[in-house]
Design a binder for these strands. Structure first.
Length: 352
DNA sequence: TAGGCCATCTGGTCCT
DNA sequence: AGGACCAGATGGCCTA
């Protein structure tokens, strides 16, 4: 449904991705219904067996007891009648039946919670910070999702790119400190930098097209490997590096990785963001790998141009040169030659 | 060990 | 009556 809503909006691929995810979820839920029904059927068959057994053996006994109850009531005719439903004796059979009902209800409740959890898992995959190995908590997932929707709405509304710092700040509103660090880390932003930048506006470029204060960013993005993103830059000193988090920002401006839909990527529904996979420990950091696996995003209106003044190396090259990540913004100047046409299109859009 | 998070059970309420 | 939904209780697991 949302896909249709955004279909004519050539605005932001990520928004469309998000919309299509919600559609996927609708399908997912109907799939789940079938599965839940199946698992419930197992309970049902067990229960119907026990119930039919009960009806056959104990049921008769139960009827007898009901008659017995009525009989006793007739005998107490002169006593004032109690209002409300008659309290029936808890016979063995009734206890059994109530136990079965309870088991059924428990099974339903379990299924319901499982559905809820898998919906949350799906949500985790599309918010800007996803890891199979260390999941965001439920509450943090919901908060982040809310912020994410808000941020996307803002982008849609303004039709312009936000400043990365503002974007991360929006995403992290109301999140716990660990999650904030996580998201910032995912976005390759040093959390301390972005938190202390509040109000300082450090390192921003307020260009004529700027809605939040634009920065002629160039963004380095490494290829995702398995469930983890590739190691580089800030990640080397980031405590979250080992958790395999991947994150999102530049997907708003284009898919920087060719493998988002491949089975290698463990979050196929994730927004096509690879703000650089920081956290892989597997990746061989040979120069060849650098060459092959670095995908970068050019955020400047001038493709290939180097941002003046505050261009900062924040890729593996920065790492090699031993620059401490805390003093850097996570942007690099690499532009993958294959991607250049796409960047031009995107830049054209954002500078219309 | 305390605190956070989670799964599960349970009883209550509302709706069909 | 039965199912969906909800919230409280409880116990397990993990981490700082």
């Amino acid at each position: 449904m949302l896909t249709r809503l955004f279909s004519d909006t050539s605005l932001i691929p990520e928004v469309q991705k998000f919309a299509s995810w919600t559609d996927d979820c609708e399908e997912d839920i109907s799939d789940k219904d079938e599965r839940s029904e199946k698992s419930l059927q197992e309970v049902h068959t067990e229960e119907s067996l026990s119930e039919s057994k009960e009806d056959g053996d104990i049921g008769g006994e139960d009827d007898e007891e009901e008659e017995e109850e009525e009989g006793t009531e007739e005998n107490e005719g002169d006593r004032p009648k109690k209002r409300g439903p008659k309290k029936r004796k808890m016979t063995k059979a009734r206890m059994e039946r109530s136990k079965v009902r309870r088991q059924k209800a428990n099974a339903r409740e379990r299924n319901r919670m499982h559905d809820l959890n898998s919906a949350l898992d799906n949500l985790r995959k599309v918010v800007p910070c996803y890891s199979k190995t260390q999941k965001l908590s439920k509450i943090e997932t919901l908060r982040l999702a809310k912020n994410y929707i808000w941020a996307l709405s803002e982008i849609l509304r303004s039709g312009k790119r936000p400043d990365l710092v503002a974007y991360v700040q929006t995403l992290c509103k109301g999140l716990s400190q660990p999650t904030t660090n996580l998201v910032a880390g995912c976005l390759q932003l040093n959390s301390r930098n972005f938190l202390t930048e509040q109000g300082q506006d450090a390192g921003r470029y307020h260009g004529p097209n700027s809605s939040f204060g634009m920065h002629p960013y160039t963004y380095q993005c490494s290829r995702l490997s398995g469930s983890q993103c590739q190691s580089s830059s800030i990640a080397s000193s980031h405590p979250l590096r080992s958790h395999g988090y991947c994150a999102t920002y530049d997907s708003i401006y284009g898919n920087t990785s060719p493998d988002y839909n491949s089975s290698e990527y463990d979050a196929p529904l994730s927004p096509p963001l690879c703000v650089n996979g920081n956290f892989s420990l597997k990746q061989d950091s040979s120069p060849d790998n650098d060459k092959n696996y670095h995908y970068s995003m050019h955020y400047s209106g001038l493709p290939g141009s180097r941002p003046s003044g505050h261009s900062l190396l924040f890729g593996s090259s920065g790492m090699r040169s031993g620059v401490h990540s805390e003093n850097l913004l996570p942007y690099d100047m690499h532009v993958h030659h294959d991607r250049a046409p796409m960047y031009e299109e995107l830049n054209a859009f954002f500078h219309n």
